[in-house]
Design a protein around this nucleic acid. Structure first.
Lengths: 239, 239
DNA sequence: CGTACACTTGAGCCGCCTCAACTGAGGTGG
DNA sequence: CCACCTCAGTTGAGGCGGCTCAAGTGTACG
């Protein structure tokens, strides 16, 4: 059930059979959520973390004028709030953007892992640092890339991240998000996202339609986005 | 020498005398760097982390057109690249924005801490998650706040972070950054930062001049920025 | 067959950028 | 001691990328 999480971890690190077992044993309740459901609210006291099995989640913050910024997307295999293990409560909300299946991992079991499996603990620590690296890349997009580059960059990022867990090829992947949700990731309005998607289509780079991303020219897409997958740390760490 | 780091950690957590000793013992070489010096470049293989004792550091990425985005500022007491312990190399550069004194902490010693001091390991893990929370707040600023709010928000953030280590009062703090460097944090041009600073001054909220931030109206400043210090996790974590 | 919701497109506006000129404070060498 | 350079900061004029407002189209679902 946590095979996608293991695929993700094993891209970057060795996971021994004992460590795999420890992860298996850490699993708690499995839950299915509908789309558009906020299941963690900023400030809630948390005693378990959420491992995503299927679907797409978003971490987000709302402002008083109703604007929303999604700060990271999560795909199958991601821990959506592993950081709540050390933070105890979150500074942001977490919602489903599509219907989603998750499994809860009690913090008590994570604590035991830190005490009994130091290497696995470091691997989990790495996972939260990878989330931070994704945040940094989004900061660069939001601060310095224009709407076209920013959108292209997000499609490139998701192609790699979904590819790791077998949910994307170089040519396409399923992405059941609305243009409003994309806009909330990109710091744009949905109207402008719509125009950008049109331009990406007309330039024969990528087509986003009916919940699919069809990449016509991956090299070209990466080129205009200045996409460098280094921030996703795809190389293996020495044990 | 690491007293500011301990001040920072103890705002959020209990640090036992043994743990304090372990941190002391982890210290390696002390180095003084001049201002404007990039001492970690993306991709460099790293075997120690950098604890900042004095000065201000910035994590940043450059784009091909010469634009730069600073993704986080570091102040005395911060680990500037504790995450390099799990990442092994960084996806971004780290530079001094002012003259700075740092102490290196070998990864080998951090590894020993994860094996012998699980609680302290979690505290350090927390520190990197706090950096991620700061990244998220900057994403919100860059994505959804206008130039005035964004600038005000940064001044509020630094007031709290410098206050923790005794380098800021509610009324003022030293901040020897240029307007160009501020612009690189804020995703703006230095010309526009200059106009924003003028407006903040004219509105009697905050004055930034000759390396000092003088806060005329902290409540007002926080109000226009919608600043909520919750993202800095100032509450104590149960042991 | 009506309602809701995602998407699409046009027209006009505005926040921030670009380009450029100028001021002022150090620092340095003749 | 001053002429000169450099670099941070300041200000104005004009342009443009993305926003706002508004009116559509398409489609799924009751």
């Amino acid at each position: 059930m946590i095979d996608k999480q293991l695929m993700k971890l094993r891209v970057r690190d060795d996971i021994s059979p004992e460590e795999e077992q420890a992860l298996h044993d850490a699993q708690g309740q499995v839950i299915d959520y509908p789309a558009d459901h906020t299941f963690i609210t900023a400030g809630d006291e948390l005693n378990c973390s959420t491992l995503l099995l299927e679907g797409i989640l978003g971490r987000y913050k709302d402002l008083s004028d109703g604007e929303r910024q999604i700060t990271e997307l999560h795909v199958a295999g991601d821990f959506a709030d592993l950081h709540s293990f050390t933070l105890k409560h979150l500074d942001h909300n977490v919602m489903t953007l599509t219907p989603a299946k998750i499994v809860q991992v009690p913090h008590e079991k994570l604590k035991r892992i830190t005490e009994q499996h130091p290497h696995l603990a470091r691997v989990l620590w790495f996972s939260t640092n990878l989330d931070a690296a994704i945040h940094r890349e989004w900061e660069v997009s939001l601060g310095r890339r224009n709407a076209l580059q920013r959108t292209a960059h997000l499609f490139c990022e998701l192609q790699v991240r979904l590819g790791i867990v077998g949910l994307a090829t170089e040519a396409e992947y399923r992405l059941p998000l609305t243009q409003v949700q994309l806009a909330e990731c990109l710091g744009l309005t949905s109207v402008h996202v719509n125009r950008v998607l049109k331009e990406l289509r007309e330039r024969r780079l990528v087509e986003f339609r009916s919940a699919r991303v069809k990449i016509a020219d991956l090299a070209g897409l990466r080129s205009i986005a200045e996409f460098d997958p280094a921030f996703l740390y795809l190389d293996r760490r020495p044990r």
